[in-house]
Simulated scan of single mutants.
Amino acid sequence: MDVISEVIGTIRAGRPSALRVRQSGTWGMYLPGIEGMGFHVVLKGTGWLITPSGQPVPLNAGDVVLVPHGVEHGLSHTAACTIDGLPDLELPSAHPVTEPAAFDVVLGCYRLERGRIHRFLRELPPVITMSPDYDRHPETRVLIEMLVADVAEDLPGAAVSRSALVDLTLVHALRHARGHTRLGAWPEVTDPGIAAALNEMHTSAQRPWTLGQLSTIAGMSLTAFKRRFTLLVGTPPMTYLTDWRLTHSARVLRETKAPLAAIARQVGYSSEYAFANAFRRKFGIAPGRFRDRMTHEPTRPGRAPVPDAEQV
């Protein structure tokens, strides 16, 4: 199992956003805590990463900040400040200033509805700073340039391109974190039997799987399969399958206009009613309302970690 692919697949149940912020003079911005995952890419200038605990971290052009599980933090022109003293982030106006700025940064995130951050992200440090080698990885520079161009204008297809570019930026940030920071062992599942069962769950979620069928695919007894799966993946197999189905359905709800009955069949539920009940148990909201909120509700930044804050 590729843990980065699974993390991105899970986070895509949320709502992607990205924006560019330019600052000069005496500046600072408070970024409220959210349920989600985000990143910042410093395009120009220098600044400081401010967290509730810990020393301020210097930031330079090219640095990437990864925020795996949406903790509150801030950015500032000076290290001599606290997070409580930072002003709220001001969203760029509809007609952004084009004059050069001392500090230029792109902020991006996926904000989730309610608590569904992947367990692996919860185990990472709250904030990770990186300085990618753009000469060795020129594709990272190209990706950032594409993201900057995409947020500059609201062009046709932006809903698709923004999501794809945020996905790719997070993938590159996680890859870099994996190779260049001491994050401990990444929970890769290399057991061929468990990997085979996971692959069937992911690619054929619509099938009415039983524990016995999955253990047969894994080539294990039912008891051995359940024990081994739970040890390696962190949750029992049928619990994992249910969570995967519903997380996938949330992504389909956000990205398509498919009828609820069709989505229910796509993720293995015999009826729209059964699907809606399972979805409500996991997310605390009916699938139809979830779709409406994800596609129509505006961004509302604020100092408190409010449910609708979109900026990380």
Rank of each mutant, 00 (worst) to 15 (best):
P87E: 03
M238F: 12
A102G: 11
N199C: 12
A276C: 02
M146N: 14
W186I: 11
M220S: 10
V105N: 04
T78S: 15
H40A: 13
S271W: 08
Q23H: 13
G36M: 09
W209Y: 03
G302F: 07
M220C: 12
G284R: 07
R291F: 01
A261P: 07
H77L: 03
T140R: 08
T46R: 14
R136Y: 10
P138A: 12
A159P: 08
T10Q: 14
C81G: 03
L260G: 00
Q23R: 14
R122N: 15
S271G: 03
T46L: 10
D63C: 09
L112V: 08
R175S: 06
V306M: 15
H202F: 11
A80Y: 06
L43T: 07
G14Y: 01
P87D: 06
H172E: 08
L59E: 05
P138I: 07
F120S: 12
P52M: 03
A218I: 00
T230C: 06
C109A: 15
R227N: 12
R12T: 02
I128Q: 05
V64G: 04
L183A: 10
L214N: 00
L49W: 02
L165W: 03
F283E: 00
L124I: 11
L170H: 04
V41H: 10
E188L: 05
M37H: 12
G14M: 06
C81E: 01
A149M: 09
A250I: 04
D104P: 04
G54A: 04
H137V: 11
H296D: 11
L147E: 01
E35W: 09
R119K: 14
D308H: 11
K44E: 15
R182Q: 15
L19M: 14
T129Y: 08
V42N: 00
D133C: 05
G212T: 15
G38A: 09
L168K: 09
A94N: 15
Q311V: 10
I8V: 15
V306H: 15
G45P: 06
M146P: 09
L198N: 05
E90N: 10
A80W: 00
T295Q: 12
G193R: 01
P87M: 03
R289V: 15
H202P: 09
G25D: 08
L19K: 09
G179D: 15
I128T: 05
P156L: 07
T223M: 08
G38R: 05
G38V: 07
G54H: 00
I263G: 04
R265Q: 09
L246Q: 01
W186M: 07
S131D: 13
F39C: 11
T82V: 04
G184Y: 12
G14L: 03
F103K: 01
E90Q: 12
M201E: 03
L246E: 00
Q206P: 04
C109H: 08
R281P: 09
H40F: 09
D308G: 08
K226F: 08
E188T: 14
G28V: 02
G36Q: 05
P87V: 01
L112D: 00
G302Q: 09
I4A: 03
V151P: 03
E139G: 14
P156D: 08
S270Q: 15
L155R: 09
V171P: 11
E200R: 11
